[in-house]
Design a binder for these strands. Sequence first.
DNA 1: CCGGTCTAGTTGACCCAA
DNA 2: CTTGGGTCAACTAGACCG
Length: 773
Amino acid sequence: MEDEQPARETNKICGVCGDRALGYNFNAVSCESCKAFFRRNALKNKDFRCPFTENCNITPVTRRFCQKCRLDKCFSIGMRKEYIMSEEDKVLKRQKIEQNRAKKRPTLENTKPSKIKKGYLDECNFDDTSMSVNSVASTTSDTYFWESDRKYTDLDANRQNVTESLSPVTAASVPSPSSPPENEAISGSKTLDMMKDSSQNSNFETYDHSSSIHEENEVDTERLRMDSNSPSQSQQRFDKVKPSSHNIEKDKKSITSSRKFDQNILDLNSEFAPANHESMKYSSEFDNASCCNKFDCSPVQNSQYIEHTSHYRKTNVDMDSGMHTNVQICSQETVSSQKQSRETCSKEDNFVSNKLPQDSTLITKLVNNSNFITKIFQNEELLLKIMSDPVVISKLEADPQTSHFFKRSGIVVDKETSPEKETNTHFKDDAKPNHNNSSHTLKTTFKVKQKQIENPILTDLITNSSQEECIRQRDDSEWNRNLSDVTRDVLQDVQRVPIAANSIESILCEAIKLEFSAYSALGGMETRRVLNDAERAKLNELIVANKALLAPLDEDITNLIGEDCKFKNNFGRSDPALLDVVNLTAIAIRRLIKMAKKINAFKNMCQEDQIALLKGGCTEMMILRSALNYDVEKDMWWIPHSQESMSNIKVDVLKEAKGNLYAEHTRFIRSFDPRWRDENIILILSAIALFTPDRPKVVHNDVIKLEQNSYYYLLRRYLESVYPGCEAKSMFLKLIQKISDLHRLNNEVVGVYLNLNPSRVEPLLIEIFDLKH
DNA sequence: CCGGTCTAGTTGACCCAA
DNA sequence: CTTGGGTCAACTAGACCG
């Protein structure tokens, strides 16, 4: 225990290069040099080129050789450029430091500290608050959310050890197929490289001379040639890190890295050996057990998030201690409400009833934080609590900015309320105030008001289906009785407490626990491991949700094309033209929305994110479905329609599309292993596609990433449960690569939508693809 | 062609401030 | 105590020149 501090320092290994790290930088454990490198380069839109094959092994020695791969690695281990201050922020910070220095100077010079001290402290407090709320919070809400995240990471020393051994296939770093770092498409091999690298990372845990040798031997010969003039440089490096410093403390610190470099120099010399290990590296690393370890790590890092959120909840309770800054409070509120509004409600209640009324400046600061406000309005109970507290309301109204916000949002506070009576707050356009269900009215009215302009159909589909869901959930027992097939069992499974309470936490906690116990028990991957209850429930949730897609399309198609089943865009023929097919996809999208709304995690997300995910993910999900319904021999898709003539669509129709859609689709579909046409695999892939964190306009991409990772994890576990170890892993890797392909194909598909004449397209599609603009 | 010099850009270690 | 930014010495690569 007493060695905790030194242990903490020596145990930290840079996730990018493996050098010694001191802690988190830009959201990932990294060394000083990678920190500086990332800070200098992540925001630059420099078009770095890899001089090799874009899969450089980044080590303390090789990290300077390829900026591209180094930067990619930075992103892949979860470093976030959002953490880097913008120029504006830097200027503000500099100004503030200057101000503080200016204030300190007279303090030092002046021999009357008492007089100055008071003024300084007052101003300083004011400055600090304004800095935290205005400069930081209002401009980079996302950033300060992660700041809190980061703070948390320091609180749990135990977790650190786990974190260090994490692979890039983790919560923060699972390759996101849709928008890889710097908007570059991640190629399949790139994705695989990330997996490959991750195995090295898992080795970092036991980084020593031998691992150093291992790594350095992997440097490819091209690089060796490039470094062929380097003996002197190497010597320089060697000299530089030799314990020549007079500072004994420093010597001690540097001794590890010196030895490492020492070894690196030897390795560099040995690198002149002609063998190119690159290909061997692939096969060995993919086959050996470390490959499996790195996957095991992913849920562990996910657990960070679980712990993060639980920490937020804890700190929420501690809020009265006054030890937390307002910014933290906001971020805590944000996170907890987005994660589980119900669970945190009691704590929020305390916050509302105790803290808010006492502190009007706090109210102002909270109101200035749009993110927080958004969250408030997503939490029905909290909103009601706030709006029904006369003291809070009067404080809110007294604040000029808050009242402006009210005005802007169309909120009217009823003046005649007395403290005894409930404050009656409503929206201007709420013509018939519903006293019985005011909170619901408040919520829905506000939502509709907010979103009406942008995505009316989509919003309506989301909120309607949400209400539908509520009704359905109340009638669960009724519904169950009507189900005669396996759905009933599955549904009961889904409704088990762990998944019903909160899908992510319970699933992952359970999964992580079992993951390790199972591995230690089995000692490897030779045995197929059945899904545990939590994993099964997570999968079953998708299966139940999927029911929305399986109902016959008869009615929907009739609504679209009329009783005679003649496609209007193809001169009355029964074969649909491209435009008909496009419009048919509107039906599919409606169903996909229904499906998504049956996934708890999706349902719990804020509306902005729901819309963003659906807009970005619906076509990818459709493509995946089409892979499942594709008839290879006849080159057509099957659709659920009772009439034989209407139950298939010729893929030929894609030839009408501009660009390369038909060829791309054919390539995608033909490289789709028949074994992947497994409903469950498609479902999990669909969920991965749906929960893609970097869709445009996504608000809480971290939450989405967490959810996506849980599906990556589920995919791997499902494959393990069906296929033997190596095959499962191989398939997992291929499927991840397929997700990259999917993204490419999706771009083609979206291109087709964008080329359409909006006047002939279903309104929903116009909205999804922003065709009016 | 070679070696020396200059210069701009990059890197990494250290430090400061919040 | 942690972490992001600033600074500066060291290093590197390319241009230029004799």
